[in-house]
Amino acid sequence: MDFRIFVSPVPTGETTYLGWLLIGLRNTIALSLAAWVLALALGTVLGILRTVPGRGLRALAGAYVEIFRNVPLLAQLFIWYFVIPEIVPGGQRFKQIDPFVQQFLASAACLGLFTAARVCEQVRAGIESLSHGQKNAGLALGFTLPQTYRYVLLPMAARLIVPTLTSETLNVFKNSAVCSTIGLLELTAQGRQLVDYTAHAYESFLAVTVLYLVVNAAIQLLMRAVESRARVPGYLGSRK
């Protein structure tokens, strides 16, 4: 195995092959962060909607989850990239902008909305795991329902679901690789480029694997720090 390929310059000369991989890594991280922010925001709202008294709202959020969980991510991505621009107003203009931006936006939207469905279920589970007593205690103090959510339910639920959110963060990073199929030059796509240009398949894939493992480890460390700060003293599973 010849690892010198990583420091050889690419045909167009502007960087080394390793540099290509790092560009891919950068794009992966950017995409994942964008999608994750969208997913958290939307997913939290949906998760709350799944627990409110209004049946219509619950059903609406439930339908969202059903749709986005029962269609493969790849199909959703292709629909975002190939179908949506055809049918929404302004779609034609979308097709004119820089291809990278098109791919990035479609990927971020797709991954964000897909993950939001999963976040929704986790937020819902977190809220539902709090006993009814908590909600009643809030209401009994004179809080309105929105206030009860804001001051009583959501702060606790947020802390409870930090572990599941950790695995969700990792999932977002892994799922970003699917976006290589529409041409987005994220890490997996760059790996494939490397194989095509250098014919050193083993080294290329080893490097890509190592990078994913590193990102994974970094996220786990980060989330562990978040987890320990979010821990509620005396509550189940936390140190006193």
Partner: peptide, 14 residues
């Protein structure tokens, strides 16, 4: 820790 897409590519190419 790794994406399924990458594993599939690995199996497809190597």
């Amino acid at each position: 820790s790794v994406p399924l897409v990458m594993v599939l590519l690995w199996f497809f190419l190597i």
